[in-house]
Amino acid sequence: MSMPYYVSPEQVMKDRAEYAQKGIARGRSLIGLICTDGVLLAAENPSKSLYKIGEIHDRIAFAGVGKFNEFDQLRVAGIRHADIKGYTYSREDVDARSLANLYAQYLGQVFTHEMKPLEIEVLVAKLGFKDEPSQLFQISYDGTVVDRDNFVILGGDAQPLLERANETLVEHYSIADSLKKAVQILQGPDRTLNSGDLEVAVLQDRGSRRTFYRYDRDMLEELIKA
């Protein structure tokens, strides 16, 4: 009987992380920004129907990069979690932090126990209410959670975007201004993105209970050019 090769746990984890990172870097980037009047989520996404950004609950949005089927499963699970919680307790008891932690647990679980890690990175965005500030939770393929109070960049080749964002985003801006800045950060100096290449949604108080609004292409065109 032949002995199986010994592979150190360290090496296993390294390989898995590398595998996941590669998968995520292949996709295009997404940016989440906290604005003075809401939260803006913008992604480079040429598809008109396969969305990366989605509504979870009244004041919570989801965004994912990487493998579509993998993050979409988490999006749906998030909606279910939020709606069951809102039904059992009260709508105001649905919070983004606990959802971010559940995602983190799941991603961490898959990363350590399954053959293949999930090749995704997800964002849970919460629109602030009264004294509570808006928040962005970034959850990586290995279950690491980071919360940001200004902006977050997911997927693609994030490093140059991060540098551009650090230069451009020094405070909170209005949604309209943030959108223009987000497009600049996503496209970089050598390319131009137009409304057909983008998917944009906001969390914004407009007087109703639900705060998630998706910008359609025409509206986006107008806002980018304005």
Binding site: Q73, L74, A77, G78, R80, H81, I84, K85, L102, Y103, Q105, Y106
Partner: peptide, 8 residues
Amino acid sequence: MTLPIFSV
């Protein structure tokens, strides 16, 4: 509560 993920 855990994440409501179901098999197909």
